[in-house]
Design a protein around this nucleic acid. Structure first.
Length: 603
RNA sequence: GGGCGUGUGGCCUAGUCUGGAUAGGGCAUCGGGUUCCUAACCCGAGGGUCGGGGGUUCGAAUCCCCCCACGCCCGCCA
């Protein structure tokens, strides 16, 4: 049986794989013998999960039967007859047009528990790869605190990175800090004046509450306060807008006042500390200004200038006729530089991507749906300069407010991540106090922080990225049912059993025969699915499937917990159930890691 | 007007990429469960034209076409 690094054969890191492969090969062999062409490419994809209680896997014969010109029922019967049972199968039946495969449960239990216990924290991981992956996510302008809408990017990106790591890739998460351009110029412009010289409408709008100062407030909130008022003000004041434009030019010719970087770093620091509360971290930061300073943006502009599709606009702006790249007609003219020669975001992004391509084999960008066109523009621009590599885009939909429309600080309809987290933690605090009297205030606070953050992160993560999410306080703060705290609670429960048994680390001796109740075998089957889930998400980017899996695992464990006593059981059931609990706890813990939720030993 | 995405019981959601067996869950509602390992749990009940129409197919929530609704984007913002 496998040891800790037993994935060299590509088989032993996933308990379900040997069975699936056995079915696939034999099915392909038999159908091939009938002359069915599709069998050549393997039938694993067509192997589906049978309805629970019927079998483990099913194969629908209709398609092959039609191709072969025989009735599906007959084909099914023929395929099931004398299907070799060596290895992981115990029974193969023909049910109408379906061939149903029943896994050898005791073998599966044996393989799964051994594998989980032996691999520990590495259970769920796939074979290591050397292909370096960059996941760029969040990259929000440092102009104010995160609202809940923007944090979806970070949570999706961070989870994808965690899953890709688990799948075996060396992953770097990267934040592209936009310290150039008009938005960051606006912040510096306003803060470079003493507050009493601010335009009255900005000063009034941005006035902090009584007693709040930079020393009592996070820097992102403090410096971000005037942002939306400045934005409005500039629309009505051309002279001021002119000053901001001038500052934008200075930034791009590396004449940024020291204050500029100072504020950007302070604001970014505040933003990052909020993200850290929900488990989002970055390995690397690239400041946009560095791409200008090292000349790579200028080089890119030069390449566009020489392009046969370059257009010099009347005012001196450089544009690109990108009609050949399948962009919508209305968007097929891409502006490369402004009239004054300064670059635009898409142009700088080209330089950034060339740089990423030089560092990574795979480049993944997590982008909001408003960047859909930007993604296509970027592809077109890369093609235009003869670059053959492309980033992979993971595009997610917005979090909208119940009244409709997406969250927006500028439009004054946004919920700050910090406020949501504070509320979540406060509620979690109350929940902990309700059920634990034995903990110190410090412990309660620590648990509450993790539970609150877990609820928020899971809430964002549970929905498929391409679905819009309507933000509702009550739902985001749910600690019950399909929620982060439910998964964390299940982990704590499993740990509690082991702690009381005095068996918190291997060995966990067990007898497969002792694990034969439906709640036990169902649980093993779910535990065994973790590696497959990791692979699936790494391949598709469907990060919400980790949340779905986590819930399913927690649910199966709680059913087991409810129905079957562990500590009071007789041997050998007791030891065997302890092994099952240990394996479940490990799988739950590893899943929580991939989700970016904290493991809690008690709650 | 064009592009991208979404539409599944009162609310939220899985399944859609790769068509297959009675469409899985959660919240809410109603009814049960704690001398026992944490009730943030478990069990049961009711509740579904899978936005609408057409098509392909032995078979469609899933693929194709049309329509409707909602969100976002559509050259010198990012």
């Amino acid at each position: 049986m496998p040891t800790s690094d037993a994935d060299a054969s590509g088989n032993l890191w996933d308990p379900w794989r040997p069975v699936r492969e056995q079915i696939d090969q034999e099915l392909a062999r038999r159908l091939g013998a009938h002359g069915y062409p599709e069998s050549a490419e393997g039938l694993d994809r067509q192997l589906e999960d049978a309805p629970s209680g019927v079998a483990d896997f099913g194969y629908a014969t209709h398609r092959a039967a039609k191709s072969l010109g025989v009735p599906p029922e007959r084909l099914s019967a023929e395929l099931a007859t004398d299907f070799p049972l060596s290895g992981g199968l115990v029974r193969v039946t023909s049910d109408g047009a379906y061939v149903n495969f029943h896994a050898d449960t005791s073998r599966l239990i044996q393989a799964t528990l051994e594998l989980v216990i032996a691999r520990g924290a590495a259970y769920g991981r796939g074979p290591p790869s050397t292909e370096k992956v960059c996941v760029e996510h969040t990259s929000a302008n440092p102009n104010g605190p995160f609202h809940v809408g923007r944090v979806r990017n970070g949570i999706i990106g961070d989870t994808l990175a965690r899953v890709l790591r688990a799948a075996g890739f060396p992953v770097t998460t990267e934040y592209y800090v936009d310290d150039l351009g008009r938005q960051s110029a606006m912040i510096t412009w306003i803060w470079s004046k003493p507050v009493d010289q601010w335009p009255p409408e900005v000063r009034d709008g941005a006035r902090p509450p009584e007693g709040v100062t930079l020393s009592t407030e996070k820097a992102d909130h403090w410096y971000g306060r005037p942002y939306r008022y400045v934005s409005d003000f500039l629309k009505k004041n051309p002279e001021a807008a002119q000053q901001v434009a001038e500052l934008t030019r200075e930034l791009e010719s590396h004449q940024a006042p020291p204050l500029h970087r100072e504020i950007a770093e302070a604001v970014l620091g505040g933003m990052l500390s909020s993200l850290a509360r929900v488990g989002v971290h970055f390995d690397s930061f690239v400041w946009e200004s560095s791409l200008v300073q090292d000349g790579s943006v200028a080089k890119v502009i030069e390449r566009f200038r020489k392009s046969p599709h370059a257009i010099l606009e009347e005012n001196g702006a450089l544009a690109l006729d990108a009609q050949g790249y399948g962009l919508p007609k209305e968007s097929a003219t891409i502006i490369v530089t402004r009239a004054d020669g300064t670059s635009l975001y898409p142009t700088r992004d080209v330089a950034y991507h060339l740089q990423k391509f030089s560092r990574f084999a795979r480049v993944i960008d997590v982008l909001g749906q408003d960047h859909q066109l930007h993604a296509r523009t970027l592809d077109a621009m890369l093609a235009e300069i003869g670059e053959t590599r492309r980033p992979e885009f993971l595009i997610y939909q917005d979090i909208t407010v119940p009244e409709g429309g997406r969250m927006s600080t500028r439009k004054g309809r946004a919920v700050h991540l910090d406020d949501l987290l504070d509320e979540a933690v406060e509620r979690a605090h109350g929940e902990v106090l309700k059920r634990r009297e034995d903990l110190s205030e410090e412990q309660v606070a620590s648990i509450a922080e993790r539970v609150g953050a877990g609820a928020v992160r899971f809430h964002v993560l549970r929905v498929a990225p391409d679905k819009p999410v309507k933000f509702r306080w009550e739902e985001a703060l749910s600690f019950e049912g399909r929620s982060g705290p439910f998964v964390q609670y299940s982990y704590a429960r499993a740990g509690s059993i082991l702690r009381k048994a005095g068996r918190e680390s291997p060995p966990f001796p067990f007898e497969t025969r002792a694990l034969n109740l439906p709640e036990e075998t169902d649980l093993v089957r779910v535990v065994a699915r973790l590696p497959g889930t990791i692979q699936y998400v790494a391949r598709t980017g469907h990060v919400h499937a980790v949340a779905t899996y986590a819930y399913g695992l927690a649910e199966a464990f709680n059913r087991f917990y409810q129905a079957i006593p562990v500590l009071r059981a007789e041997e050998p059931a007791r030891a065997s159930r302890l092994a099952l609990v240990a394996a479940t706890r490990q799988a739950l813990g590893n899943t929580l890691d991939s989700l970016g939720l904290e493991r809690l030993e008690r709650m």
